[in-house]
C-alpha cells in the first residue's frame, strides 16, 4: 500500500509543479496524468530544463542528459516513471 501512496504523491508533486509553473493554475482537471505535454504545447526545451531541475531537487535524483527526451517527458505519468527508474538506480 505504501508504494501506491508514494506513486500518488509523486504524481501530485509533478502535476502541481507543471500546473503552477506552466499553466498558472492549481486546477488538476487541466492536466490529466496521460495528457501529452508536447502535443498540448506546454513543454518546450526551456520548460524541460526547468522540469528536470525541479525533479532533481524535489526527489533527490540525478537525471542524465540522455534521459531528457520528449518521450520520457511526454506526460505526468511518464515523468514519474522516469523519476522512479532513477530512484531505483540510486537505491541499487
Amino acid at each position: 500500500m505504501s508504494d501506491a501512496v508514494t506513486r500518488a504523491d509523486r504524481l501530485a508533486a509533478v502535476r502541481g509543479f507543471i500546473l503552477d509553473r506552466f499553466l498558472f493554475s492549481d486546477d488538476p482537471s487541466l492536466l490529466p496524468d496521460d495528457q501529452s505535454l508536447i502535443e498540448a504545447g506546454i513543454l518546450d526545451s526551456m520548460g524541460a530544463l526547468e522540469l528536470i531541475e525541479f525533479l532533481e531537487e524535489r526527489f533527490g535524483v540525478r537525471i542524465r542528459d540522455a534521459d531528457v527526451t520528449p518521450g520520457a517527458l511526454e506526460s505526468v505519468h511518464r515523468i514519474v516513471e522516469l523519476v522512479e527508474a532513477r530512484l531505483a538506480v540510486d537505491d541499487g
Partner: peptide
C-alpha cells in the same frame, strides 16, 4: 546546442 543528435530535447 547539445541533445537533439541523441534524441534529447536540445539543451
Amino acid at each position: 546546442t547539445r541533445g537533439p543528435e541523441s534524441g534529447g530535447f536540445g539543451q
